[in-house]
């Protein structure tokens, strides 16, 4: 597998931000590092030619989540950090490292990025969607066609999950309106 310079730089940036989020002592700094991480991931999606996912990551991960985190922070009292980095707990490092290793072992089993012979690219379902989506659904974006037409029932479930999240937040706080 070869990486372009841009991809390598983005990956390095994302991993750096992730480590920063975990290690920074100041909560505000950690939230900022997390926002930068989301932004890096969304650019990475763009580079990998998944603009729909990239747009979602930028809007939800880097945008709304950061605002909600900042609001939550402003409603809590955080002690002033007297050092920049959190002391490293080696038991946690071992646990997380083991998990990363476990996931990493499966990576070589995946097809290379943009491999034309990858099962997902040449699969029957993918070919069917790409050949018939425009004729059958009248929309040019195959992602939208799958999302709203072929897998519309799943998307209904997703939308209802978002709705349910709002309702649950209301009922936990014993409110009737979002106020």
């Amino acid at each position: 597998m070869t990486l372009t310079l841009l991809e390598a730089a983005l990956l390095l940036f994302v991993v750096g931000c992730a480590v920063g989020t975990a290690l920074l002592e100041d909560t505000l700094a950690a939230v900022m590092a997390f926002a930068a991480y989301s932004l890096g991931v969304s650019v990475l999606w763009l580079v990998l030619q998944a603009p729909d996912v990239g747009l979602t990551e930028a809007a939800v991960g880097a945008g709304i989540m950061t605002i909600l985190f900042l609001l939550a922070l402003s409603n809590t009292v955080t002690p002033d950090a007297d050092r920049i980095l959190e002391p490293v707990r080696w038991r946690t490092v071992a646990l997380v490292g083991g998990f990363v290793l476990l996931i990493g072992v499966t990576v070589p089993a995946l097809p290379a990025v943009s491999d034309p012979t990858a099962p997902v690219a040449s699969g029957e379902v993918t070919t069917y969607y790409l050949e018939n989506a425009y004729e059958q659904t009248d929309v040019r974006n195959a992602v939208t066609a799958v999302l709203a037409a072929y897998r519309g029932f799943d998307t209904l479930g997703e939308a209802v999950v978002v709705y349910a999240a709002g309702i649950v937040a209301l009922s936990v706080l014993r409110r009737e309106v979002f106020a």
Partner: peptide, 26 residues
Amino acid sequence: SKYGIELVELGIGAIVASVAIGLFFL
């Protein structure tokens, strides 16, 4: 088909926008 899909997208947009605003206010 096209208008139906666009209406569905608009419905999803309404849900997501109002829940985002709601969580923000909460």
